[in-house]
Each structure stands twice: as C-alpha cells, then as structure tokens.
Nucleic acid binder design. Sequence first.
DNA 1: TTAGTGATATCC
DNA 2: GATATCACTAAA
Length: 172
Amino acid sequence: MARLGMDFFHRQVDEVARDMVGKVIFRRMADGSVISERIAETEAYGGEEDLACHASKGRTKRTELLYGKCGVMYVYLCYGMHWLMNVVTGEEEQPQGVLIRAGEKYDGPAKLTKHLGVDGSFNGRDICSDPEIWIEDDGYRPRIIEAPRVGIDYAGEYWKNIKRRFIAVKGE
DNA sequence: TTAGTGATATCC
DNA sequence: GATATCACTAAA
C-alpha cells in the first residue's frame, strides 16, 4: 500500500483520471474509525478551452482552487443537496481536476460523498497530507473503459462527446 | 419525467 | 437586491 502523493497528481488530468480508477480512497471518521472505498469511475475536467470545466467561464472565487496546487480537493455543492468531489491535478495556473463519480459499492457522485462524509468543509484540503482523507494504491489494476462525460449538455457537441470519463470493468 | 434544493454568478 | 443556472438523486 502506498499513499498517493503530489507526483501522482502532478500530471495531465486525463492520465491522472485514468490512473485513479482502481485506487482506494480512505476516510477517517470523527469517531476514529476508518472506511475505504475503491474508485470505480472518474471524469477529467480541464484545459482552459474545456467548456465543461467550471473554470472555463473564468477564474472566480469558486474555481480559484482549480488553478491552484495539485492534490487539493475541490468539493462543490450541486443542486442544493449533493456534494461532488474533485481533486486538482496538473500545473498551477491551469484549471484541471478529476471528478470522482463512483465507488465500487456506491455508484453515483453524491452517494459516494455522502457515504464518505465529505462535504464543503473538505473544500481546499490537500488529499496528499490530510489526516482525515487520502488515497492509496494497493496494486489493483482494473481494465478501464473510456466514455463521454455525462451531465454537461451545456458544453457543446465537441466537449460533450470526447471521452474523458473512465470506468473500471468489474471482475477484472 | 419531474420535483426538490441552495451556493454561486450574473444581472439589475 | 433578484434571478438563472447547475459535473444530481429519488420518487413516480
């Protein structure tokens, strides 16, 4: 087991998103217990031209984190009730991030964050050094399917259709 | 298919 | 200050 560090996230967002599939996310709860969940699905967002990336519309208070240091969590409240969890990747000054969409047992971005107890208080934390949440590589290497991202109809035909979504194949 | 929900951004 | 938007889920 090896905890993922800065070097893992300091790469092209597409590579990081792909490599994160199959890794295990750990969470130390307030009562001291530790739960884990293998990542089954991610999506890559980023590049200044990526219309699906929040930061494409301009650098704002909210998206500021995406321009910052890699390894930092970007947690965002969607539709007033769902927390979505991302990890910033790549160079500083480049808005890039990986959305963690699903775990093996918790399929769906908001279900995953709910299970892990991740909310707005995790926004801006460094997943490489935070004592309450981290990601490890246990050597598992699933076969990975690439697919178009979902839920970004507003981003236009091109960005809607490119394959920046990575899904683990079960049982391999 | 649609109702629910609230932070953020954008427009007065 | 007000409105429009949104990387979703559950219920029907």
